[in-house]
Nucleic acid binder design. Structure first.
Lengths: 207, 207
DNA sequence: TCAATAGTGTCTGTTAGACATTATGGA
DNA sequence: TCCATAATGTCTAACAGACACTATTGA
C-alpha cells in the first residue's frame, strides 16, 4: 500500500531464534489439491481484513541460503491494498516503506525486488493503481499513486487527458476539501472501453 | 524459434506409458546448491547445441493433475534460439509450431501459454527478437520476427525509423539476394544507446 | 488578500502510420 | 520488359508535455 511518497510492504515478526526479526507473510505448501493462487489468497486473507484487489505471482525463488522456514523453494506473490489498510495480525505485523525495510532473508529481499518490478511492469495492464486507493479518490490521488509506482513525475493535464481517453473512471458527483485549495471531485474506478489499440513499436532495451 | 509465420516449441518424447506422447524438456530439482537459472540452463544445454541467448523464468505452476514426472510443482522457463536450430536429442525431440502442438499435460499447456505471454510482454525490454535470428539478418527478417511475436503487422518505414532511433543494429556491409527483388543489406545486433526515455502514461487495461 | 490546490484551454515538438517514389535485383 | 522486394522521403493525425489561465477553497 502507498505511504507518504512510496510503497509499503507488510511484514510479520519472525519466530524467536531467527537471524532476522521480520519476514514476508508466508505459508508452507500443503500436500496437493490447493493451487498456488488459492494458497496466496489464503496468506493474504490471514494478513489483512480485505481481499487484495490484485494478486499476482512474481516467480519462484531458490538459492543456497534457505528460506526462514527451511524450505528449498519459495513462490513469491504481490498484492495491493488501499492506503491505510490495517493488518489483522495486530502487533505481529507492520508496514514498512520499501526504502526503510529491516533486514530480510536474502530470498525475501529478492522477492520484494521482483514484486516491485512486477508492479511497475504490469501497471498499464492491471488495475493496480486503483487497488492502492479507496473506492473513491481524487484524480490527484490517482496521479500521486502512478508517480510513486513509476518513480517519476507526471504532467497533470496530460495524465488526465490519457485517463479520459481510456474511460477508466467516473465522477461520483461528490467533492472533497483537502485542507487548503479548491475541493477536488471524487471519482470511482469504472472501466468502460477496452483495448485501446497499442501504437508503435518500442525498442527500450534497458539491460 | 520462428518457423514459417509462427513460433515453434521444442518438445521431447514422453516415456512409455504416459498419457501424452510429448512433454516439455525438463529436469528434476536436485537437493540444493543449484539455482533455478542454472538448472534451466542445464536443461537447455542438453536440448540444443547452442546456449539460448535469452532464458527467463515464467513462473511456478502447480495443480491437481500432477506433472508427468509426478512432481507437485514445476518452474517454467522460456528461451530463444535462432530459426533452424537443430536439437541435439535427435529423434527424441522435435519442434512444433505453437498452433499445432500435440496433446500436452495441462500443466505444460499452461507453461507454454505463460511462456508465449512472457515473450510478447518482455519484447521491448530484452533482446528476444535478435536471439531468434542468426547473428546477421536483414531488416525484413527482423520485422517478420517482431510481427510473429506481436501478432500484428508493422509499418515498414516506421519500424525502421524506430530501430534507427534506438541504435540497436549495425550494417555488416554485406548484402543478401533472396530470390527476386533487390538484395537486402545484412545487419548485426549491436546496441549502442540505451534507455530512451519512456514517454507517456499508458492505460491499456485489457483484462 | 494571499497561498494552495483543482481543473482546462492552447500551442508546439515528436512520432506512428499512410502514401508515394526510387533502387535494384531475378524471371 | 515486368515483377518483386529494399530503402527512403514527405505528409498528416495523434499526442505528450509546456505554459498559461481560471476556479475555489482555507488561512
Amino acid at each position: 500500500m502507498p505511504v507518504d511518497r512510496q510503497l509499503a510492504v507488510l511484514l510479520v515478526r519472525a519466530p524467536e531464534g531467527s537471524l532476522e526479526r521480520w519476514t514476508l507473510p508466508w505459508a508452507p505448501a500443503p500436500g496437493t489439491g490447493t493451487s498456488l493462487d488459492e494458497l496466496a489468497a489464503d496468506v493474504a486473507r490471514r494478513a489483512v481484513p480485505i481481499a487484495p484487489g490484485w494478486l499476482e505471482q512474481v516467480g519462484a525463488f531458490a538459492d543456497d541460503r534457505r528460506h526462514p522456514g527451511d524450505v528449498a523453494l519459495s513462490v513469491g506473490f504481490v498484492g495491493a491494498v488501499p492506503a491505510g489498510t490495517r493488518s489483522s495480525l495486530g502487533e505481529d505485523a507492520a508496514w514498512f516503506p520499501v526504502a526503510e525495510l529491516p533486514a530480510l532473508a536474502p530470498r525475501h529481499q529478492a522477492i520484494v525486488a521482483a514484486a516491485l518490478e512486477a508492479v511497475r511492469h504490469r501497471l498499464d495492464l492491471a488495475p493496480i493503481a486503483f487497488r492502492l486507493l479507496p473506492s473513491s479518490f481524487t484524480l490527484s490521488d490517482l496521479q500521486r499513486v502512478y508517480e510513486i509506482l513509476l518513480g517519476r513525475r507526471l504532467h497533470k493535464a496530460s495524465f488526465r487527458r490519457a485517463l479520459q481517453a481510456a474511460s477508466l473512471v467516473q465522477p461520483t458527483g461528490e467533492w472533497r476539501s483537502e485542507g487548503r485549495g479548491r475541493p477536488a471531485q471524487l471519482f470511482r474506478f469504472a472501466p468502460r472501453r477496452r483495448g485501446r489499440r497499442r501504437r508503435g513499436v518500442r525498442f527500450d532495451l534497458l539491460g
